[in-house]
Computed example of a mutant assay.
Amino acid sequence: MQPAYELATILNLHWERANEQLALNGWQWRTLHAIRRCRTAALGGHIDQCDSCGHLRISYNSCRNRHCPKCQGQQREAWMAARQAELLPIPYYHVVFTLPEAINQLALYQPAAIYGLLFSTAWSTIQSFASDPQHLGAQTGMISILHTWGQTLTLHPHLHCIIPGGGITSTGQWKSTRCKGKFLYPVKALSSVFRARYVAALRKLFPEQAREFFNQLFVTPWVVYAKRPFGGPDQVIEYLGRYTHKIAISNHRITGVDAQTVQFRYKDYRQAGTQKEMALSVVEFIRRFALHILPKGFVRIRHYGMLSNAIKQTTLTTIREQLTPMQNRAQKDEHTTELSVPIEAVCPCCKKGRMQHVMDFDHRGPPMEIVNRTTSMIKSTH
């Protein structure tokens, strides 16, 4: 179902006003400009043809920007397919590391440093607990996904982590966690270690900051939230689909746009996730969205330990060989989820054929003979 309103429409309608009132950096403007031109004539397009009935479809190109609401579907499907092939028949845990609001001011001016430190400190904390024989005594792994937003588009940096319930010992043996599926590691201990290490690293990065600032960071507990383990690989895949390529706000959450304001839905987690609506001025809405445009080249999905790209093929093969054939067979039979063929690949006319790429065109548009032929096909079906 097509959304009633789009971020691109808001940007196009109020581009000049945003330019006059917002002090964004060049990369943020470049990203917003790509989003507002996505799937328009400005980016050119391509022509697909059904390999069964010959139906022609003319489409404008997407901007492929990772912050664009319209460009995440195909990237998400491909990424999920790769992760699905790597899943093991073991418990997986979901842990969330959240930075306190006091650090937001630094994140505004040094986002790469603050977010990079969030990744490294979270992994350092998990790695320490995993290597401790009291908890596991093995090398574990982690997939981390950075989100920087809250439901109302305010700055709320936090890291969603998927962690396997076990690891590889120094002798190359698989070892499961001792928690019997109830929890991964003690949450309070995780929180304390995470806070201490992050603040210590922050002092080195920002030695000019006053001592009072760092002391303030120890006043309130930091949030490390550990959810119950996933019910199986199906739930892991479903979770990855929801979170990996998510952006600050989807087009479907936008409920109204006028000359002055933008209205959108959000969940109020202070009231049990109650659905509410908020109205912001157009410029404030664009400013809040721009807060979540990551620095150029910043990697927001990272793999660590035995799940890192450098060694995961070897480690995953070793683990599978040690797990019983019965477990592997049950995993395959019960939990393998077939990823559906992308909707855009299925012919909208006959519903049987696959759309195949046949031609590209630039901003001047497709050849007139193709346009006329497509128009004739559409008329003949009505």
Rank of each mutant, 00 (worst) to 15 (best):
Ala102Tyr: 00
Ala102Trp: 00
Ala102Ile: 00
Ile103Thr: 08
Ile103Cys: 02
Ile103Asn: 00
Asn104His: 04
Asn104Ala: 01
Asn104Pro: 02
Asn104Gly: 03
Asn104Cys: 03
Gln105Tyr: 04
Gln105Gly: 01
Gln105Thr: 07
Gln105Ile: 11
Gln105Phe: 03
Leu106Asn: 01
Leu106Pro: 00
Leu106Lys: 00
Leu106Thr: 01
Ala107Leu: 02
Ala107Met: 05
Ala107Glu: 00
Leu108His: 05
Leu108Val: 05
Leu108Arg: 13
Tyr109Cys: 09
Tyr109Arg: 15
Tyr109Ser: 10
Tyr109Asn: 12
Tyr109His: 14
Tyr109Pro: 01
Gln110Ala: 14
Gln110Pro: 03
Gln110Cys: 12
Gln110Phe: 15
Gln110Met: 10
Pro111His: 13
Pro111Leu: 14
Pro111Asn: 13
Pro111Ser: 12
Pro111Thr: 12
Pro111Val: 13
Ala112Glu: 13
Ala112Arg: 15
Ala112Phe: 09
Ala113Phe: 12
Ala113Tyr: 04
Ala113Arg: 15
Ile114Tyr: 12
Ile114Phe: 13
Ile114Asn: 10
Tyr115Met: 12
Tyr115Val: 10
Tyr115Asp: 04
Tyr115Ile: 12
Tyr115Leu: 14
Gly116Arg: 09
Gly116Leu: 05
Gly116Ile: 12
Leu117Pro: 04
Leu117Tyr: 03
Leu117Glu: 07
Leu118Ser: 05
Leu118Glu: 04
Leu118Ile: 06
Leu118Trp: 07
Leu118Thr: 04
Phe119Tyr: 11
Phe119Cys: 06
Phe119Ile: 06
Phe119Ser: 06
Ser120Glu: 04
Ser120Arg: 15
Ser120Phe: 01
Ser120Tyr: 01
Thr121Gln: 12
Thr121Trp: 04
Thr121Tyr: 00
Thr121Ile: 12
Thr121Pro: 05
Ala122Leu: 03
Ala122Gly: 04
Ala122Ser: 11
Ala122Trp: 00
Ala122Lys: 03
Ala122Gln: 03
Trp123Lys: 03
Trp123Phe: 10
Trp123Cys: 02
Trp123Tyr: 12
Trp123Asp: 02
Ser124Pro: 05
Ser124Leu: 15
Ser124Met: 15
Ser124Lys: 15
Ser124Phe: 05
Ser124Asp: 14
Thr125Gly: 09
Thr125Ala: 09
Thr125Pro: 11
Thr125Tyr: 12
Thr125Trp: 08
Thr125Val: 10
Ile126Leu: 14
Gln127Ile: 00
Gln127Thr: 05
Gln127Pro: 06
Gln127Asn: 09
Ser128Arg: 15
Ser128Lys: 14
Ser128Asp: 08
Ser128Ala: 14
Ser128Thr: 09
Phe129Ile: 08
Ala130Ser: 13
Ala130Arg: 07
Ala130Thr: 07
Ala130Asn: 07
Ala130Pro: 09
Ala130Cys: 06
Ser131Glu: 10
Ser131Tyr: 10
Ser131Thr: 07
Ser131His: 13
Asp132Met: 07
Asp132Thr: 06
Asp132Glu: 09
Pro133His: 08
Pro133Met: 09
Pro133Asn: 07
Pro133Arg: 08
Pro133Asp: 07
Gln134Lys: 13
Gln134Asp: 08
Gln134Ala: 10
Gln134Pro: 01
Gln134Leu: 11
Gln134Phe: 06
Gln134Tyr: 07
